Simulated scan of single mutants.
Amino acid sequence: MSQISFADAEYAGKRKKTRREVFLEEMNQVVPWKALLKVIEPHYPVAGRGRRPYPIEAMLRVHLMQNWFALSDPAMEEALYEIASLRNFAGLALSEPIPDETTILNFRHMLEASDLAEDIFKQVNALLARKGLLLKRGSIVDATIIAAPSSTKNEQGERDPEMHQTKKGNQWHFGMKAHIGVDADSGLVHTVTTTAANEADVEQVADLLHGKEQQVWADSGYRGAPARVARDVKWHIAARPSDIAKLPEGVAKTRVQQREHAKASMRAKVEHPFRVIKRQFGLAKVRFKGLQKNTAHLLTLFALSNLWMARRQLMGQVRPQMA
């Protein structure tokens, strides 16, 4: 831990905690730091004749804050200089060098090159499973479109070739899709896949199931799912509204509507992780070019959304750690 500067000491003396500080304190308690550091350490550069690398935990904390607050590399560097709560969380002080945007970029590239985002996601879910928060008795599957820049006003003069357009309702969207499998009991994400936006949702269904679930809930876009999964599970796939509308009025139609309402109530859980990464963590558009980098970004975001959604349960089971 770096020696605290006069500016940070003055900041520490204030009484009121901001929402950002409360958020960071909560996440500090629930992130499995030791497990994540163990995953990253074999790939992190060691001290040699060149400049001494920043502490691995400090860089991991900076990386997670980038994802929580949707900050670019330059914006993250500036935030570390300007916002004391972010420096404190990372264990940095103005009296010592602050990681610059290139250092922050290189750390992310190291994670991408070694496919460590998937390992981070697995370590988070392993913690949730040990705490009894991932029961795996049932799954809910769904997908969301994440927009990509459609402009060709760039160096290549073209749109991202790995992104495609698709029509949803009466509107065209250009970008990618994030497909997720969610635990039906807790609403936490257990599986993530990505495709271009024009990929049919049902094409990914087999990859979204972990193999232990006994029931699966999905919207009407997954009507062909049972034929694509070579296992005996009970399917709860939504009927098309147009099909329900064609039914004659009466007791039979009312029962169908009640069953569909029950299905929709269960499927609503899958929207919570999408809301967290899009609204709370600020994923309005893809951050990078190509599916590989964006997949790594999404895996990290869904790992962090799981921790955020389960923080109340986890905070009752773990001892606080000081940043």
Rank of each mutant, 00 (worst) to 15 (best):
H179Y: 02
Q165P: 00
D219K: 04
L92N: 05
G290M: 01
F6D: 12
P273A: 04
K278Q: 12
N154T: 01
K38M: 02
H236M: 07
A70T: 10
V286A: 15
R312T: 14
V46M: 08
N170D: 14
R228M: 14
A117M: 11
R61Q: 12
F6G: 00
G48C: 09
Q165M: 00
P99Y: 04
M266D: 07
A296D: 12
F302W: 10
L111A: 02
A93F: 00
L37I: 14
P226Y: 01
K16P: 00
H297K: 00
K136C: 04
L307I: 04
R49T: 12
P97H: 08
K285R: 14
Q204H: 06
R228S: 10
Q66C: 14
L64E: 05
I180C: 03
R231A: 14
P161F: 08
E271K: 03
K131D: 10
V270D: 03
L80A: 10
G211Q: 10
L94C: 01
T18G: 12
S186G: 15
Q280S: 13
D100A: 10
Q3L: 13
Y11R: 11
P42V: 08
H297L: 09
H43W: 05
V205E: 01
G91H: 03
K168E: 09
N125S: 09
W235N: 10
K285F: 05
A129N: 02
K263F: 15
Y54T: 11
A12I: 07
R15G: 02
S186T: 15
V216Y: 00
W235I: 06
L71T: 10
M110D: 05
N154E: 04
R15S: 13
A200Y: 09
A147H: 02
H63L: 12
F302Q: 08
K131I: 02
A148Q: 03
D219V: 06
H297D: 15
V286Y: 06
P42C: 07
F6T: 12
Y44R: 08
P273F: 02
Q123C: 10
F274R: 01
P74S: 07
A84T: 13
L64T: 06
Q280N: 14
P97L: 09
K122T: 09
R61I: 06
E10M: 14
A79R: 09
A323E: 13
V189N: 06
M76V: 11
R287K: 12
E82A: 14
A262K: 10
L94W: 00
K167M: 11
L299M: 13
Q215F: 00
K269F: 11
Y222T: 05
A117Q: 10
L133G: 05
T152L: 00
A126R: 13
